[in-house]
């Protein structure tokens, strides 16, 4: 059959098939390219998280010497020290601890990004968590002359999840509350109902505008004003907290109005049997 004998309809069809074939071939090529790119990205991401893990190790090693010598000096191992020197040592220690916190935050976030943050699911007691948070942060609240209240409902059920990570979340929220509140109180409440724990941290601080609330849980974002710049921080704490709560299948949010203080709250299932993967 020669070309001249083809009907226009046949030609039209052949052209359509040819076009489709071109598109299909192009799709296969694009698909290959995407697969290739995503493999490259995966490798790059693994390299990045390995680099951050090594980096964190390298940063923690000298920090061990700095904090270790500081504590030994403050404990008088190298002899009695004048009061003024003791004051300087305290500042040295608190700055060293702050630096450690920043290193830990960056490491945590890099692990989350690389999908390497794994919850360690075991039994925990919310009473114990509240107690840890109280003993860790009550001195900071006392330094600022803030009232510090911890209200845990009676007869809390035993929890199952990553108690250490949930402690980290609560310490982060309470630490923020103390940091941004200059007068008044910080109140922690814990209760359980309908198979979930409910935790909240209320403060009498400056409050947060609606626009800033939207940005709070994103990486490297802080409510952008002079106060937050003065108070410091990486802006990673809430982003990390959000991921930890979500990995437990829970929710975290803020309720606040400028001038009315803030309340950060989260809920997690009492029993978490499996880590929830990010969507």
């Amino acid at each position: 059959m020669s070309v001249r004998t083809r009907k226009p309809r046949q030609i039209e069809l052949a052209t359509t098939f040819a076009d489709q074939a071109v598109i299909a071939i192009e799709n296969v090529r694009l698909f290959d390219e995407i697969q290739d790119k995503s493999r490259q990205l995966e490798v790059a991401s693994q390299h990045k998280s390995q680099f951050l893990a090594n980096m964190s190790h390298e940063l923690r090693t000298p920090l061990n010497a700095i904090l270790g010598y500081t504590e030994l000096m403050a404990d008088g191992i190298y002899g009695e020290l004048p009061e003024k020197t003791m004051g300087v040592l305290k500042r040295l220690e608190s700055n060293g601890r702050h630096l450690l916190g920043l290193i830990n935050d960056v490491l945590d976030l890099s692990k989350i990004e690389a999908g390497q943050l794994m919850l360690e699911l075991t039994d925990y007691s919310l009473e114990d968590i509240a107690q840890t948070v109280r003993s860790t942060l009550e001195p900071l609240a006392a330094d600022k002359k803030l009232a510090f209240k911890v209200e845990v409902a009676p007869k809390m059920p035993p929890g199952h999840g990553d108690g250490r990570r949930l402690t980290q979340v609560l310490i982060n929220l309470v630490g923020n509350a103390i940091k941004f509140t200059d007068a008044g109180e910080v109140v922690i409440k814990a209760s359980a109902s309908d198979g979930s724990f409910h935790l909240s941290v209320r403060d009498s601080g400056p409050g947060i505008s609606a626009a800033d609330q939207a940005k709070l849980f994103q990486e490297f974002q802080q409510a952008d004003n002079a106060i937050t710049r003065k108070k410091g921080g990486t802006g990673l704490g809430l982003a990390i907290s959000k991921r930890i709560v979500e990995m437990h299948g829970g929710k975290i949010w803020v309720e606040s109005q400028v001038g009315q203080g803030s309340m950060f709250a989260f809920t997690v299932p009492v029993r978490v049997e499996r880590q929830v993967e990010p969507v």
Partner: peptide, 17 residues
């Protein structure tokens, strides 16, 4: 560390005390 047989695990930086 525990699987290797270590009895305790101490993370650096640790408190000498």
């Amino acid at each position: 560390a525990r699987a290797a047989g270590c009895d305790e695990y101490v993370a650096k930086p640790y408190s000498p005390r």
